[in-house]
Design a binder for these strands. Structure first.
Lengths: 133, 133
DNA sequence: TATTGTTATACTCTATAACTATA
DNA sequence: TATAGTTATAGAGTATAACAATA
């Protein structure tokens, strides 16, 4: 398996997916990063845990959470034991929004990747082989 | 095939790939967007074609190209027929840099996705099925 | 002393609208 | 009139360094 073919397939899929995120985010008046946070949020993560999950610096989380908090999508909750820690939770509004965002992103992904032609299938073959074989 | 499982697999892969881009870009003192442009650049695209390929607005290309041009990675060339059009070409420095970036990104992708355990393989199964089956 | 979240800073990315020079 | 690239603007994402509160 050629590393570059695999890399090219990964890169192509990444570009396509970025476009889907941008489209869906736009429909909800949010950014790609905001809906990614929204969709992957589970439990009551701390800011540091969130930064690790999203693969970015912790300092970004403050602003990201602030903007979503301002919209009533999520909220800060103090940790019960360690008073340095703030935990992030979805509000009810946030849960409903997440449900709609997930549904639309799911549909967009399904439409884009659900039924590929032979050409695209060949394009992604190195990736399919790596992930599945 | 559940749309959400597929979407979750796509989202997971997208997050992983974003991290790889960020790491590699960092090693070269560039941004993720810059190495993505660098790696997908082929031929002598106009600014508009570049914007379409990258899935962003044309106004972003000006700055993106300016910053890479300042580093000697690429250059503007006037179109021979239509004087409104500028075409983007790699310099020799740019070709060498692209070669190194591609090699490192290829290696990073290979290391990350080349040999997955059964757990991750299951995680990506919906994607493998969609892209390959 | 170490860690958590925050702030200040600087830069990049991003889209919209208005502009210019060409066509 | 229409199109290609640019500029101005505003907002968002990003990392580094320094900080206050807490452990």
């Amino acid at each position: 398996m050629e590393p570059r073919d695999l890399a090219a397939a990964v890169a192509a899929l990444h570009r396509e997916t970025s476009s889907l995120y941008a489209e869906v985010a736009r429909d909800f008046g949010l950014t790609s990063q905001q809906i990614q946070l929204l969709c992957m949020l589970t439990g009551r993560p701390s800011f540091g845990e969130l930064a690790a999950s999203l693969g970015c610096d912790k300092t970004n989380i403050t602003g990201l959470v602030n903007r979503l908090e301002k919209r009533g999508v999520l909220a800060r909750e103090p940790d019960t034991r360690d008073r340095r820690i703030s935990r992030v939770v979805l509000t009810e509004t946030g849960e409903e929004l997440r449900e709609r965002v997930r549904r639309q992103f799911g549909a967009a992904v399904q439409e884009r990747f659900g039924r590929l032609g032979p050409e695209e299938r060949a394009r992604y073959a190195p990736l399919t082989a790596a992930l599945g074989g």
